[in-house]
């Protein structure tokens, strides 16, 4: 009896010791990354949240005055902020929708092994890896008044030419086009990879059940690319929502504030008006909106 108890105790001890060892090894692996993330992501985030409740100048960041929710009240009455928020939401919705739909269409076309698909796959990432400044220079050149290729074509068709980034009403759609141009191939490649992982037998079975191309897409393809779709959409919604470079380099937020987005407004508040606290409060609004979107979207995807 004593031997049995001793043996049980020994087994528990071994298991506990093994658990502890394994766990601590796990912790040991995780801790460096956690500390790094805390420093690189956690600290700036918390600091930004903190600053949003203070009046603080970029030129004298040591002098901080607690103002509570004053910045958020000011944001509610700030017409430029409201316009920038609307532009940001509209830009994100349009850019991500077009990117997804065009990327999906392209992926379906590539899946059917259209001629040139191999070359496209090789070249497709060029737009995505291209530095944003290079992309903006190319687009600026393309719509340059007089000698830009777009204007040369329009002129040959007897249509109006101008510097289109300087045209109210056209500058904003052009920003959308730049986002779409940059990201569609990445969507296509990612969705194509997800489609290629679907077993062919499922399509065969659907065909035997009398499913046409649309049904096969709706009931076989779409459900099985939804996870990749979710990742792509969440990533690009956040990327587009906080994107600064594309707008700032191409229009600076103009003309007449037509392309002002939250990211450019944060920059102007922090680095031109020196209003760090107010800029941080805009950042907090962006954080809340993005977190809400991500949580809701991921939950909906799980339910689905």
């Amino acid at each position: 009896m004593a031997t049995q108890t001793e043996s049980q105790y020994s087994r528990y001890k071994e298991e506990f010791s093994s658990f502890l060892t394994d766990t601590w090894i796990g912790y040991a692996f995780v801790i460096p990354a956690t500390v790094l993330l805390a420093v690189v992501i956690g600290y700036p985030t918390l600091r930004g949240l903190y600053l949003a409740f203070f009046e603080v100048s970029l030129l004298n960041p040591e002098q901080m005055e607690f103002v509570g929710l004053q910045h958020f009240r000011a944001l509610a009455a700030d017409p430029i902020f409201k316009a920038a928020l609307w532009h940001t939401v509209l830009l994100t919705a349009l850019a991500v929708s077009f990117q997804y739909l065009l990327g999906l269409g392209l992926a379906l076309a590539l899946k059917e092994k259209v001629p040139g698909a191999g070359i496209f796959r090789s070249l497709s990432m060029v737009t995505w890896v291209m530095p944003i400044i290079v992309m903006v220079i190319i687009f600026r050149f393309m719509v340059q008044n007089g000698f830009g290729p777009v204007n040369i074509i329009l002129d040959s068709l007897g249509m109006r030419t101008t510097y289109w980034f300087g045209e109210p009403g056209v500058a904003f759609p052009l920003i959308v086009v730049m986002h779409v141009w940059r990201n569609v191939p990445f969507y296509a490649i990612s969705l194509l990879a997800a489609m290629n992982s679907i077993p062919k037998e499922q399509y065969e079975a659907a065909r035997l059940d009398g499913a046409g191309p649309l049904e096969r897409f709706r009931y076989v393809t779409l459900p099985q690319i939804s996870y990749v779709s979710m990742i792509m959409i969440v990533l690009h919604v956040t990327f587009t929502f906080k994107n600064f470079d594309i707008v700032y380099l191409s229009t600076g937020g103009g003309p007449l504030g037509n392309t002002e987005v939250l990211a450019t407004y944060v920059y102007k508040q922090a680095f031109e008006q020196y209003a760090l606290g107010y800029g941080a409060s805009i950042g907090v609004v962006m954080l809340i909106l993005m977190l809400t979107f991500t949580i809701v979207y991921v939950k909906l995807e799980e339910v689905d």
Binding site: P44, P61, K242, V266, L276, G279, A280, G283, L287, M290
Partner: peptide, 16 residues
């Protein structure tokens, strides 16, 4: 967001 927070954090680093 990161732009805004980065600005704040960078400034706080500068200020501290």
């Amino acid at each position: 967001m990161l732009k805004g927070l980065g600005v704040g954090a960078a400034a706080s680093l500068a200020g501290c």
